[in-house]
Write a protein that binds this DNA or RNA. Structure first.
Lengths: 242, 242
DNA sequence: AAAATAGTGTCTGTAAGACAATATAAC
DNA sequence: GTTATATTGTCTTACAGACACTATTTT
């Protein structure tokens, strides 16, 4: 970035700097808010009421304010479009294909957010929760399929690609970061935690070694409390540490 | 992104869309080009000749063209500022703190690139190769220190943070992706490959199990050729597969 | 022969998978 | 008691680290 004018004082330079000399892309954030629903992956989506992709489902998103950090923009989107705050939120990838939006050049910094599905109970009106089908396993890539009430529905823009990358990111981080707890309430059983991992990874895990691994990780604290009102031996409830 | 005007036909909508209605951030790319030099990490940097951070070292970067993809912009920067093409190049993270550039709001999509140091021999004039000191190990984070001829030098903007994140990314991917080969020429010995891993990770690795692990990975092809003109038993040369 | 590194074989400790046995709740 | 799951313990296998030994080149 040394496309700068010739030598002058720094004050003089800043005073005359013309920030609007070139036509520039617009900058937006989009948020892939992922939760678990009935042993499957799900995302929160907004039904568009304007062109392009009118009536299609899209990730919640918005333009980045001129004085607003990217993280702040993503938090604002989550608050305004999904009525949520205090959610795990992390930058995912920036999507910048020139034709990704037919209106104009819009580069989008995508975020992914993870939440306990029960927190989505009575929230905003325009948001819907849709099931995500992951048509690939492990390393493979590409867009996900999105199903609403059992039928596959298309997503606006490149949002199915963004969701696909979000799933891959969560899968990849599950083993070495405490990301899986974000899908659960404060207290949970080891079985629930394992089911989270199985759902995210799309495969079953060995029950015994999962238990050993988690207990050995030092991330869990046994509360001494147990499940209630289950029709079998109640499991101990654990809490995520730190 | 449903901040759209009320109902109308899609053609009508696109015709009247005003893409410049809001003040918007500028968008740039910066490239952390990393190589290995004398058993240490090094990055290619450009000396700035304009304010701000005049005379300081900075990552090569440039603004994103209005019709140019982000990947294309990063490739162009690498070609124009470092005289390099056909280099491993991958998006890293997008930096968007409002005050990261004192001139104006500039959001930068950072890329990292990896290259065999010997390819940097006789390239462009303005670029220098500087040693990177990583003041943390493992998971920890923050900016790196940059040394030129034995003295610590500051980097412009948040570029030391970008380099820090690039190192962490490479460290993290080294174990599960074939990223280490990017630092080596086409033919290399297992010792050279191990030294690459040791340099990137900042710690020594077990010689025997590294060999076993690499040979078992199926990523290497033995060429049958051997090193020449070394003052000890010459090692077999391997090639990276696929 | 000496020096230096390449390459092989073997032992050990750790952790995962498999499986069996016991424990505890609801009904 | 029956059912269903929790929890503990043991055996086996795979692999990384450690270490000893042999091989091959230059000087």
């Amino acid at each position: 970035m040394s496309n700068d004018p010739p030598t002058q004082s720094e004050a003089e330079f800043l005073a005359h700097y013309d920030g609007s000399a070139f036509e520039r892309p617009s900058l937006a954030v989009d948020v892939a808010l992922i939760h678990l629903h009935k042993r499957g992956l799900a995302a929160l989506l907004i039904r568009r009421d304007a062109h392009p992709y009118r009536h299609a489902l899209a990730l919640p998103g918005g333009f980045v304010g001129i004085g607003e950090s990217l993280d702040d923009a993503a938090e604002r989107v989550l608050r305004d479009k999904a009525g949520l705050s205090d959610v795990f939120l992390e930058q995912l990838y920036t999507f910048g294909a020139p034709e990704r939006d037919p209106r104009m050049r819009i580069v989008s910094v995508a975020y992914y957010a993870l939440i306990d599905g029960s927190r989505l109970a009575g929230h905003g009106l325009e948001a819907v929760s849709a099931e995500i089908r992951v048509p690939w396993s492990g390393e493979a890539g590409g867009p996900v399929e999105v199903m609403l009430d059992g039928v596959t529905v298309p997503l606006a823009f490149d949002h199915a690609e963004i969701l696909g990358m979000a799933i891959r990111r969560v899968r990849g981080k599950l083993d070495y970061s405490p990301i899986g707890f974000e899908f659960l309430p404060e207290l949970f059983t080891l079985r629930q935690l394992r089911q989270v991992h199985e759902t995210v990874l799309g495969r079953t895990l060995n029950k015994d070694s999962f238990r050993r691994r988690m207990l050995a990780s030092g991330q869990l604290e046994a509360t001494g409390e147990r499940q209630r009102a289950v029709d079998h031996r109640p499991a101990e409830l654990y809490r995520f540490l730190t």
